[in-house]
Amino acid sequence: MALPNASNSSNFNVVPNPACQPGDTLANLKSAVMGETGASAKYAAYSKKAAEEGFGQIASLFAAASKAEQIHIAMESNLVRKAEPDYVNPEAPEAEVHSTDVNLIDAALGEIFETSDMYPQFIKIAQEAGDTAAEMVFTRAKLAEAYHAQRYIDAYNTIDHLTDEKYYVCPGCGYIHKGKGVGSCPICGAPESKFLEF
């Protein structure tokens, strides 16, 4: 089965009335790095809060997601540096932390925005510019964010019935799998042996 991309998949359309105002591909890469930097820091803070509240599995999920966003940051900032070698990644803003259930909803909403608004627009602009490297990076991030949203909603719905299942992060694209039996990554094809356990 072919790996998903904007040409062979049906979930790359932009939502009506999008909130994201994209620029050219370089500006979009920088915007993505900024957004993912904030998300990674926020999820690290949410992980700490979940642990404090006794939600160990959710703490692991947030830690896994923080790592996944770091993978996106690396992919995107590497492309920025090809155009601007002196580019320095931005600092993360301080995260506003709430109760774990609210943090899960906040996180899910952020991921839904990225997968249905921001990244589909960035992908279209990269395609129009013929920038296949940026298209691939944005595509992998977009697809991973949809899985992140799903993991957050699942954790929200089962917050009082958690298990000891682990989360596994693909180092190639930031996809997060819950439980054993990952197989190869459904987004980038990375083998199970490369996944990081949380």
Rank of each mutant, 00 (worst) to 15 (best):
K194G: 03
K124A: 15
A108E: 14
H161W: 08
E91Y: 05
P186L: 08
G183Y: 06
M136D: 15
E53F: 04
A2T: 13
S31E: 13
N8K: 10
S9P: 02
N157G: 15
S60H: 12
C20N: 13
P16D: 06
R140G: 15
G179I: 01
E36S: 11
A65E: 07
V14Y: 02
E135C: 08
P120Q: 09
A65D: 06
Q21S: 14
V88M: 11
P4D: 09
A2Q: 14
Y156P: 07
I187A: 02
F198G: 05
C173H: 01
V97T: 06
I123H: 08
E111C: 07
P18M: 07
L162S: 09
V97I: 13
A155C: 10
V137P: 01
A19V: 12
C185Q: 01
N17E: 12
E145N: 02
A59V: 07
C185E: 01
K67G: 06
Q127K: 14
P93H: 05
S60A: 13
D24G: 14
T25H: 04
A108D: 08
A68E: 00
K124V: 11
G56L: 09
I159R: 12
I71P: 00
A108Y: 10
Q57D: 07
L29H: 04
F122E: 08
I159M: 11
K30Y: 04
A2C: 10
A6W: 13
G110S: 05
F55P: 00
Q57H: 04
M118N: 10
E192G: 05
A141R: 00
Y43L: 07
E114G: 09
Y46I: 05
H72Y: 00
G189H: 05
E76T: 11
L143Q: 03
E135G: 01
L162V: 11
G56Y: 05
S116A: 14
E96G: 09
F198S: 05
Q21D: 13
R140A: 06
P85Y: 09
D154G: 08
Q57K: 11
A39E: 10
